[in-house]
């Protein structure tokens, strides 16, 4: 595993971390892009999913949207969006990633609201709660585990796909990898390629672990016992 060794050597050089365009720069860029994409995805996916779930309609449409986005290559959106009025730079990258964050957020919000026990809903109605009160005081608190599960899936997905932005010079940690390929294997780029790959993989696993913890913390103990694990749609990291 000489390549793995070269990767470790590359990672052990402090200059590779602190350089302009080094690991730290790219990591910050990666996290900022991902943060904005997830926020944008939440701003779109949650209200729509919650509203549809509250009204109990549009389940078929939610699944269709989720399945359709599976067929769109991330690379295609990353190359097409800069040519739209969004212009060049970070905004098209953020929007492209947000498109893939919406399905898990939407589907889990919808499932979460639909999975509230109809008897609970009935009881709340019987106590005289209006539609809005029912949503805020009963349905949303009970759907929190699902919302958290959606957030976790979406965030991991975004952090993973943000690496692809490098293919179109969009920044982020993937840039380390593409720069490594730019140097070429014969000129010692192998170490940088492996180091970039390791960094991207570790970041994704770290985000996954962190958000799994968050998901556990926001799930009330009573709901935890029923062993609700990750639910809803799983979407490929692409």
């Amino acid at each position: 595993m000489s390549y793995l060794h070269e990767g470790i050597v590359w990672l052990n050089d402090p200059l590779n971390w602190s350089n302009p365009g080094g690991l730290l720069d790219r990591l910050t860029e990666h996290l900022l892009i991902s943060l904005w994409a997830v926020l944008l995805g939440c701003a779109v996916g949650w209200p729509v999913g919650i509203w549809l779930g509250h009204r109990g309609r549009g389940g078929g449409a939610v699944i269709t949207v989720a399945n359709l986005t599976l067929a769109i290559p991330t690379l295609a959106l990353l190359t097409i969006l800069p040519l739209t009025p969004l212009g060049f730079g970070k905004p098209p990258v953020v929007v492209a990633l947000a498109v893939f964050a919406v399905p898990p957020l939407l589907a889990n919000a919808y499932t979460g609201l639909r999975s509230v026990d109809p008897e609970t809903r009935e009881a709340a109605r019987g106590m005289g709660l209006s539609g809005g009160q029912l949503l805020r005081q009963v349905e949303l608190p009970l759907a929190v585990p699902y919302l958290a599960a959606g957030l976790r899936t979406a965030a991991v997905q975004v952090v993973a796909t943000a690496a692809l932005a490098a293919l179109v010079n969009g920044g982020g940690l993937g840039q380390i990898i593409s720069a490594g390929f730019g140097i070429g294997m014969s000129n010692g780029g192998g170490g940088q390629i492996v180091a970039g790959g390791l960094a991207v993989a570790l970041l994704a696993l770290l985000v996954e672990a962190l958000l799994a913890l968050v998901q556990r913390l926001v799930t009330p103990p009573a709901l935890r016992a029923r062993k609700r694990r990750r639910t809803g749609v799983t979407v490929t990291t692409g």
């Binding site: 952090v159 993973a160 692809l164 960094a199 991207v200 696993l205 799983t234 990291t237």
Partner: peptide, 12 residues
């Protein structure tokens, strides 16, 4: 394994 980004897997 599914969590590992495709680009990272490919570069490894």
């Amino acid at each position: 394994l599914y969590t590992i980004p495709s680009l990272a897997l490919l570069s490894l």
